[in-house]
């Protein structure tokens, strides 16, 4: 029964059961090769709807210090692409998996080869921080043929004309970047993020998720007023580093509960 439907279908299903999708991130190979599996299991147990797996890259331009540190460690641990694919396949029949992967990792494997392996491992979608829509024209077609969804990023600095193209390019979800900046835990939800969510929602038929800097249940709930999903990365990686997978699961469960208790607001508010 593994990997039924295309990646896009699996992802959309994760957003469709009336609650806000919880989308925790983990760096493949952090804190150790086995440890990353435990982190993923903890996420599933805590009620993750989508798991975002970061494929380590030596030069992660869009990432702040926390995620940089995890990818450096992961590379030292030997987390290569084959390991990442294997890690993904361990979860893909239970929860949709999205790869966060920098383009050179894809390009080095060969685009066709990469997409085939990703589809084979059950990866539903790809977030590629350094492949804006302009550079992704052919890539998108090739990914569609393999049933791998593209989840493009939208930023507060993106104008409406581009948002339109980004919305159209999305075959998974639109990944809204909460702030002009890199990944990293932030105290509060940046003020422009709700406005960005509204702008994207007005144009996109695909689900809309918010990421970069969500680090409390309150921020997640606030994001959920306009987002279909919340992506949490740096904060969880900090907790994993300090308290291990169980600590991350405990914290994530708290977010899950906060989101669920607010669910009626969202459904009532939007429909």
């Amino acid at each position: 029964m593994t990997h039924r439907g295309s990646g896009g279908e699996r992802l959309r299903a994760a957003f469709s059961d009336g609650r806000v999708a919880l989308m925790p991130y983990l760096t493949a190979g952090f804190p150790t090769l086995d440890g990353a599996r435990e982190v993923g299991e903890a996420y599933v147990a805590a009620g993750a709807d989508v798991i975002e797996i970061g494929v380590p890259f030596s030069d992660p331009l869009a990432d702040g210090p926390t995620i940089q540190d995890t990818t450096t460690r992961a590379l030292e641990n030997g987390a290569d692409l084959d390991y990442c694919l294997e890690l993904a396949s361990g979860f893909a029949d239970r929860v949709p998996v999205v790869f966060l992967v920098y383009y050179n990792v894809i390009f080095a494997r060969g685009i066709e080869g990469f997409l085939e392996s990703a589809a084979g491992a059950g990866v539903s979608g790809l977030v590629i921080p350094d492949l804006p829509v302009d550079e992704a024209v052919d890539f998108r077609k090739m990914a569609a043929q393999r049933g791998v969804a593209i989840c493009p990023l939208a930023a507060p600095t993106t104008d409406d004309a581009r948002l339109d193209r980004i919305a159209e390019a999305s075959s998974g979800f639109v990944y809204c970047v909460s702030v002009a900046g890199v990944t990293g835990a932030r105290e509060k939800l940046p003020p422009g993020s709700i406005e960005l969510l509204r702008r994207v929602r007005a144009m996109a038929s695909a689900p809309v998720a918010l990421g970069f800097g969500i680090s409390s249940a309150e921020a997640a709930v606030e994001a959920a007023s306009e987002a279909d999903g919340v992506i949490i990365g740096s904060k969880l990686m900090q907790i994993v580093a300090e308290k291990g997978p169980e600590g991350a699961a405990r914290w994530l469960r708290g977010v899950r509960e906060a989101l669920d208790s607010e669910a009626w607001t969202k459904v009532g508010g939007r429909n």
Partner: peptide
């Protein structure tokens, strides 16, 4: 390989492989 609609290319090389946030500034 990729669509070359703009002038930021030298044959297949060049382009704009950056986070979306920077596109506006470029």
């Amino acid at each position: 390989m990729q669509q070359k609609s703009e002038t930021g290319y030298f044959g297949p090389f060049g382009g704009r492989y950056v986070p979306e946030t920077l596109i506006h500034a470029l």
